[in-house]
Amino acid sequence: MSNIARDSEIVELTDTPLFDYGDKVRANRTIRNDGTYVGKEIGEVLVKKGELGYVVSIGTFLQQFYIYGVEFLDSGYRVGMKGKELDLVRRSHEGEGPSLPGAASR
């Protein structure tokens, strides 16, 4: 049990989230279903590298990471992703973006 590999020893929750509601982001890797996306097979591609989306929710996982709910435009999927899996394209307050529920800037 002592050989459990952690994704990171850093606890992100001590800092503010990298992204905000309504931010336009790009997936910097392909994301496959790990079994938590209902209705899709394990291993099925949910998000392709380079796909664009908007942050629609911000949660946490394991009291360590922020998880960003991202609504992707091409696939139409809403997928939870870690900050390291996303690149910022445009901040929500910089204009151009859909009118999303709860997309008010903090």
Rank of each mutant, 00 (worst) to 15 (best):
N28W: 08
N28E: 01
G43L: 06
R29Y: 15
V70N: 00
L46I: 04
S92I: 04
R26I: 05
K84P: 08
Y68T: 13
D74T: 06
I31V: 14
K49Q: 04
G76I: 13
R78C: 07
R106G: 00
D87N: 10
Q63C: 11
L100P: 13
V70H: 00
L73N: 12
D87C: 02
D87H: 10
K40W: 11
Y37P: 05
R90Y: 00
S75W: 02
R29L: 13
S99A: 12
S105I: 11
V38S: 12
V45N: 03
D34H: 09
G35Y: 06
L52K: 04
L73C: 10
R29P: 08
I42E: 11
D34V: 05
L52A: 04
M81P: 10
E51M: 01
R29F: 13
S99L: 13
A104T: 15
I67E: 06
L62F: 11
L73W: 07
V47Y: 09
V45A: 00
H93L: 08
E71L: 10
F61H: 15
K82L: 08
I67A: 05
L52W: 07
V25S: 03
D74E: 08
R106Q: 14
E94H: 14
K84N: 15
S75H: 02
F65Q: 09
Y66I: 05
M81S: 12
L62D: 12
Y54F: 06
N33Q: 06
F65N: 06
D74K: 09
L86R: 13
L62N: 07
G50I: 03
Y77R: 12
V56A: 04
R91W: 15
G76D: 06
E41I: 09
Q63P: 15
